[in-house]
Simulated assay, not measured.
Amino acid sequence: MRSSVVEGQAWENVEQTRSTPSSVKMLLRACGGVGVTFLIPTKTQRPWSPPVGFQCVYESYFQNETRLWFPILRLVTSYARRRDAAISQFLNGSFRLSVALVVVAAEIDVSMSVRTFEELTYPKSMGDGLYSIHMRPNYNVIVDLPNRTNNWHRFYFYVKSENFAFEEPPGDSFRFLLSHGIGRMLLIVCRQFLCFLLMVLCLIAVEHPDTSTYPEDFVASARAVASLAQVNWKDITVERIRRVVDRISRRDWRSDLPPLITGIKRRISIFTRAEQKAINAARLMKELPDLSALIKKKLGGAKKTSSATHG
């Protein structure tokens, strides 16, 4: 057991949990939590004091307004680790967005890797050690997300860090205490990035021409997802999730690589200006059947016009 009194973790507005064995068992039955080992926090325990080998999660993460399921996505644990944050620090909207993006990506046979996810989104501090994740405005393919989840913070429990609960169980180095600033991760990122860069330089030095500096084309994946027609959150149903859950669970991307971007201001532009202009114009249209096809048509027409003019 860990002490529930930890320096820097005493937020007075965090109440004891209202979760019960019955409420958690019902939740596990509804969202595939077969074999999950859980604990109900005592009156003195809080989200930052799970026993060794356990992580804190909220019931609302798995209910209708968020629709996360067990085992918890690799994307969730990978993102939290890269931000040096506990899973319980993220508001429901963060995982709601994660669920929606992995589903629409899987439907076009694209893996929503943590690197792709980072290109499409940005984190925002909500105070009190809590964070939310939002779509970058130009890439907003998920619309009409609920603004808030009522009483989400009152029902929480601990789950054991094993394969029944997580696709990629958090290790001993995974954060369980609430971080006061995920910006602190930049120091860790810089150190990891330097090690990664050194490794790449060594590979180049011994002439490995087929070695990529990053083993996945996350920009292409981000482009594919960002060019989709906008999807309403209410259409990301449980049935729709189940149809692609096997595709979502494929381990075809690495979660242990350091970020290539170490600041929040420098971001990769996954579209050219002409492409982004076409996307913005297309999204103003109603009953849009296929955004990516429309973009290609507009850009193709623009190129033909330009060629004719030069001729």
Rank of each mutant, 00 (worst) to 15 (best):
V159G: 11
V159Y: 12
V159K: 15
V159R: 15
V159Q: 09
K160D: 03
K160S: 02
K160Q: 14
K160I: 03
S161P: 06
S161N: 15
S161Y: 06
S161M: 07
S161A: 15
E162I: 05
N163I: 04
N163M: 04
N163G: 06
N163V: 01
N163R: 08
F164L: 01
A165L: 03
A165V: 05
A165F: 00
A165R: 00
A165M: 01
F166V: 05
F166I: 00
E167K: 00
E167S: 01
E167T: 01
E168Q: 05
E168C: 07
E168I: 02
E168D: 04
E168W: 02
E168H: 00
E168A: 04
P169K: 06
P169W: 03
P169M: 01
P169S: 05
P169T: 03
P169Q: 00
P169H: 04
P170D: 06
P170C: 07
P170S: 08
P170M: 09
G171Y: 03
G171L: 05
D172L: 08
D172M: 14
D172A: 10
D172W: 03
D172E: 11
S173T: 13
S173F: 08
S173C: 14
F174Q: 13
F174D: 09
F174R: 12
F174I: 13
R175E: 11
R175D: 05
R175Y: 05
R175A: 14
R175V: 08
F176G: 05
F176C: 15
F176S: 14
F176M: 13
L177D: 10
L177N: 13
L177Q: 12
L177W: 09
L177H: 11
L178W: 10
L178I: 12
L178S: 11
L178G: 12
L178C: 10
S179N: 14
S179V: 02
S179F: 03
S179R: 11
H180I: 04
H180S: 14
H180V: 02
H180Q: 08
H180R: 11
G181N: 15
G181E: 09
G181P: 03
G181Y: 10
I182C: 12
I182Q: 12
I182K: 10
G183Y: 11
G183C: 07
G183T: 13
R184W: 08
R184H: 09
R184T: 10
R184F: 11
M185N: 10
M185W: 07
M185P: 00
L186R: 14
L186W: 13
L186G: 07
L186C: 14
L187Q: 00
L187G: 04
L187M: 02
L187F: 04
L187D: 08
L187T: 05
L187V: 03
I188A: 06
V189I: 07
V189Y: 03
V189T: 09
V189M: 07
C190H: 00
C190D: 06
C190Y: 02
C190K: 02
C190W: 04
